[in-house]
Design a binder for these strands. Structure first.
Lengths: 115, 115
DNA sequence: GGCACGCGTCAAGAAAAGCTGACACATGCC
DNA sequence: GGCATGTGTCAGCTTTTCTTGACGCGTGCC
C-alpha cells in the first residue's frame, strides 16, 4: 500500500477516489466516529442515525478508497459481526500536490476499480 | 479568509465544499493548469479541451470553494477577459483532522452558500 | 457589414450518487 | 416457535452532478 507514507503524494486516480469517498457529510461523520473507536455496523448505524443499507453503501465507498478496513469477527454469543476501523491515512491538498497527481490521472477520468 | 493558514484545520462545511470542488477529474486538471500559470477562460478551454460552458461551471465550483480567484481584465485590444488563478490553499486530510471538522458540520449536511 | 475573438447564460438530456423499504440469511434466548 | 440481535443484498425512486448545443452580448479588424 503506497499511500500510507508520510507526506502522501499519490496517483491521480487514487486521489480522486479518496476525494470522492470523503465528499459526503455522512462519510465524514463515519470516519470521525471510527476514529474515536472501531465499531460494528449495526451499532454504528444506531449511533450515527444512518439506515443500515445506506451505511453499508457508505462504508463500502470508504473501504474501497482504503480509508477504512473491516474484519468479520465472532462475538462471545456466536454472532458474526463486521468491525470497521480507520486506516491512518494522510493526504495533503495543495495546488502543487494536485498538479503532480494529475500527471498520473487516467485520460477519461472514469472511476476505476482499485481492489 | 481563515482557510489559508498553514496547517489548515477548517470548518466542516467548508471542508466539504473543498472536497466537492476537487472531486472531479476535470477540476483537478483545471487546478493543475492554473497552478502552472494563470489563464483566461477561452484559452483554458482550448488547452484543457473542455467546452466553454462546462469549464465555466467547473470554474465556478472551484471559485465558490475558494480554490481559485478570478478578475476581469482588459486586453490591449480592448477585449474583456476573465483571468483565473489558484489560491495557495493547503488542506490536510487525516482521521483526526476530519474528526475535528465534523464538530462544526451542519446537521443536515446540505450544501450551503459561502459567498 | 461580416467575421473572429472574447464574455456570459439557459434549457434539457444523460449519468452518477444518494436513499428507502423490502427481503434473505444466520445465531441465542425465553 | 417467536422475538431479538447480527449479517448482507436488491429494485426502484429521488436528487444531484455533469454535459451539450444553442443562444445572447460585446469588441476590433478588413
Amino acid at each position: 500500500m503506497p499511500e500510507n507514507d508520510p507526506d502522501a503524494a499519490c496517483g491521480g486516480d487514487h486521489l480522486l477516489k479518496v476525494l470522492g469517498a470523503l465528499n459526503n457529510p455522512h462519510r465524514l461523520r463515519i470516519v470521525a466516529a471510527l476514529a474515536r473507536s472501531r465499531n460494528y455496523v449495526s451499532r454504528l448505524a444506531r449511533e450515527t442515525e444512518i439506515s443500515r443499507p445506506l451505511l453499508h453503501m457508505h462504508l463500502q465507498r470508504l473501504e474501497s478508497a482504503g480509508l477504512v478496513t473491516s474484519s468479520l469477527e465472532l462475538s462471545s454469543d456466536g454472532k458474526a459481526m463486521r468491525f470497521y476501523e480507520v486506516t491512518p491515512f494522510f493526504y495533503q491538498l495543495t495546488p502543487d500536490s494536485i498538479a503532480q497527481a494529475t500527471e498520473t490521472l487516467s485520460r477519461t477520468g472514469q472511476r476505476e476499480e482499485t481492489r
